[in-house]
Design a protein around this nucleic acid. Structure first.
Lengths: 212, 212
DNA sequence: GAAGATATTAGACCGATCGTCTATTAAATA
DNA sequence: TATTTAATAGACGATCGGTCTAATATCTTC
């Protein structure tokens, strides 16, 4: 007895290598991301995040000023992570522009399947919760959407230049349309626990692109 | 002193007419709807709902078995309320089918404006929160979507019969597409506090309808 | 119209959560 | 080695959410 978990019962700064490489701060962000994409901000407690990682509470407020600050950082973190994923596809010169977008959609779909439709989009989740969130979140969330949208718009412009879609199409508007609908599709997909909504939206969007 | 609020300090069943006509239960549902469309389920406390109506806590558990039961009832309540709104437009024989849908969209948009984009769609809100909600909610939420979707599909079929949209269109799929995207638009609209997303989605959807 | 039965309210209660604070100890520094 | 700094441990108070028990007005019935 007295054993407890390996970390328990021992206060103070831990041995350097005990962390196994990954920093505690990173672990907290990762666990927070998982929790928030599943359950949102309000429904996720700090304690729960800490428990997942096996870190005691005291540490949290060493790394983050407050839950709000933690949330803000998660938004940036996730936004940037998603931009990388997006750009990896959208700038893939080996494919024609429209197929790049399709490749991104396919990966995003696979991501939903991977977590059995339990996790959604952090930005969408928090947007829905906005009514109960610190106002400081609003601008960041909008900023992330604006960024994502601009990148899709650029890709659509390239599709236009390549003659894949009509000269008449308004790429900015179409990109906005894409993200509006995609977030809706993620939401439904999470609710129904299948890919139907993702497929229906992706199909409909691409069909709509071609006949303008 | 000793005055307090008119209701305070007096336990037991209150005088009959004190209610002013509206039943307490109705008031709770109404206030709950407001709160949940703004902030979601998890972020809304019973206390807060009660405070809005000026009813003490004890009453709540007389009318509802639990917060969960309250939520379920709100879903039904809201689902039915929305079906009435939807049907009022979709069965309006004085307009051609497609314009009926547009009329519904216009009213829904006006609703968002009316509450300054603070309130969203209860069903969408709860869907997003599903990860933190009682499983019992899932089936109900899906049921409501299925209902709404079937009604829009019927309207689209009528549009098809009237020659407003192509014979080739798959009305069920289009109706699904509509609700997927509309929920996304409401979310964005709430986040950005303007109608841009609603307009972009509605325009894009209708344009897409016509060129199939 | 008195005596239960029922509907409805008042608010105590317990547990969870948030953010803070102090104590403790490993590492870095000089 | 002595001192400072980084990081963790976990108790604590305040608040709040959800549930439950007690109290009381009205209804019912004879």
């Amino acid at each position: 007895m007295e054993a407890q978990s390996p970390r328990a019962r021992r206060r103070g700064r831990p041995p350097k290598c005990a962390e196994g490489g990954r920093e505690t701060r990173e672990l907290l962000l990762r666990a927070g991301l998982e929790a928030l994409t599943e359950k949102g901000f309000a429904a996720t407690g700090i304690d729960e995040v800490l428990r997942r990682v096996g870190v005691p509470k005291g540490s949290f407020y060493h790394y983050f000023e407050s839950k709000e600050a933690f949330g803000i950082e998660l938004i940036e973190h996730y936004g940037a992570y998603f931009v990388r994923k997006l750009e990896r596809h959208l700038t893939d010169e080996s494919l024609p522009p429209l197929e790049r977008l399709q490749a991104f959609i396919a990966e995003a779909q696979a991501g939903m399947v991977k977590y059995e439709y339990r996790r959604g989009c952090l930005i969408g989740n928090l947007g829905q919760e906005m009514g109960a969130l610190p106002e400081s979140f609003r601008a960041r969330l909008n900023g992330v959407f604006a960024d994502w949208q601009a990148r899709v718009a650029r890709c659509l412009s390239e599709a236009q230049a390549a003659g894949e879609i009509s000269e008449l199409a308004n790429c900015d508007q179409l990109a906005a349309f894409f993200w509006i609908g995609w977030e809706g599709a993620v939401l439904r997909s999470k609710l129904e626990r299948n890919s139907d909504a993702l497929k229906i939206f992706a199909d409909g969007f691409l069909t709509g692109l071609l006949c303008r």
